[in-house]
Design a protein around this nucleic acid. Structure first.
Length: 165
DNA sequence: GTACTGATTTTCT
DNA sequence: GAAAATCAGTACC
């Protein structure tokens, strides 16, 4: 298995033109309107998958895009999948981390607290790296053309595993 | 170091 | 038919 620490995220909320749920329910974003705590996975640019955690109540259509991870466990497996040895390149982008973790469309709608793909709170992990609450920086989102100005991207300050500063 | 380009396909208009 | 929450490689400074 592989394990990583989430170091960069973006929020996609209701009434947000950049959110896939903005224009209403479709076949693709169906899971966005389901209960929180599930995975929303989709293919972007025909080549890469993006991984989101669905947030909020049923019908709200909100999610958090996981943009970057700090690799912790299963690193050799990640290196094999990504075809690179550089730790910083394993998970520093939404398309990269899905590759490193082996996430594809079959993980869409999978529960995040039970099953092959899970997210834990840092408080539940016995790891010295998780003890101190890190400083978080808030900026605008990346790679979108709508609602660019909204400050909904969050990353850990000075962390080398984020996709960019 | 930064800048630009091609790859590739699902989805919705 | 066009756009899309991207990445790796190449060219150039």
């Amino acid at each position: 298995m592989t394990l990583g620490r989430i170091v960069e995220t973006e929020a996609y909320i209701s009434n947000d033109p950049a959110c896939h749920a903005f224009k209403g329910k479709t076949k693709r974003n169906n899971v966005l309107f389901g209960p929180g705590g599930h995975a929303y996975v989709y293919l972007i640019y025909g080549m890469y998958y993006c991984f989101n955690a669905v947030a909020g109540e049923v019908g709200s259509g909100q999610a958090v895009l996981i943009r970057a991870l700090e690799p912790i466990e299963g690193i050799s497996l990640m290196q094999e999948r990504r075809r690179t040895k550089d730790l910083r390149l394993l998970c520093n982008g939404p398309g990269k981390l899905t590759q490193a973790l082996g996430i594809d469309i079959s993980f869409n709608s999978a529960p995040l607290f039970d099953g092959p793909l899970q997210i834990w709170s840092a408080d539940g992990l016995d790891d010295h790296r998780m003890v101190q609450r890190p400083e978080v920086v808030q900026t605008t989102r990346i790679g979108i053309s709508q609602a660019k100005e909204l400050p909904l991207r969050f990353y850990l300050k000075d962390n080398i595993y984020i996709s960019r500063k």
